[in-house]
């Protein structure tokens, strides 16, 4: 996994609450058996006027000029500013894969859906929670100033505005450590292999039916 340490990025504001993962990456693109290549179809149904299907050349598509990601001023954005309950709905990890593939490295919102929030950390994306009133202010600042950027420092857990204001955010210590170092979860878990084995041995005595493994 890619590390996340510092980011100074252009901000794109997506002013909708309850943005679901079906909107982030529609179902027809979930048929892929690959982990990469979802970026061109991020927010497909909002981003294009024509209907998207897997395998279409993005260059031949009709972009929706009214969708914020298509505004020239937001081209190259790496910070997504969002509203409450971002990423609700389906558990599809294709949602963070699409965001990451498009170039989004951090999200700022008042709240996230649990599964999506968790999935972000597995893909080098930092989902930052800030108070709703602060997010509202960032929306206004971002929409008012073309080229609006935010600086994010994961180690210090701060977001710095162009005006020099420093906003602190909370993040779970374990997740922070893994993101800062780009660590592979499975490798870390396997360090506990003895404990997993001991648990299994105990459970085989207590609850043998959980290990019978086949039709009874």
């Amino acid at each position: 996994m890619r590390k996340f340490t510092l980011l100074d990025g252009l901000v794109v504001p997506l002013d909708r609450a309850n943005v679901d993962t079906d909107a982030i990456i529609p179902k027809q693109f979930l048929k892929s058996i690959k982990r990469a290549g979802f970026g061109p179809n991020l927010f497909d149904e909002w981003r294009y006027l024509d209907h998207g299907e897997p395998g279409m050349d993005p260059a031949t598509r009709q972009p929706n000029p009214e969708f914020v990601l298509n505004f020239p001023r937001y081209r190259g954005a790496s910070v997504l500013l969002a509203r409450d309950n971002f990423g609700c709905g389906s558990s599809r990890e294709h949602a963070p894969w699409a965001l990451e593939d498009y170039g989004i490295r951090a999200i700022i919102a008042p709240s996230y859906a649990d599964i999506f929030y968790n999935n972000c950390f597995k893909n080098g994306i930092l989902p930052i929670v800030l108070d709703a009133a602060v997010v509202e202010r960032l929306f206004r600042e971002c929409e008012a100033a073309e080229g609006y950027r935010l600086s994010i420092d994961l180690e210090k857990q701060t977001v710095t505005t162009p005006g020099g204001e420093v906003l602190a955010f909370e993040v779970d210590g374990g997740r922070k450590h893994r993101l800062l170092n780009g660590l592979d979860d499975i490798g870390l878990t396997l360090l506990q292999a003895d404990k997993i084995k001991a648990y299994e041995e105990r459970r085989k005595q207590e609850a043998p039916w959980l290990f019978s493994g086949s039709q009874q």
Binding site: S91, R92, E93, N119, N123, T189, L190
Partner: peptide
Amino acid sequence: IGTSEVEHVLAT
């Protein structure tokens, strides 16, 4: 769970 965790459960 997401796909990374599917892999994690398979492995661990």
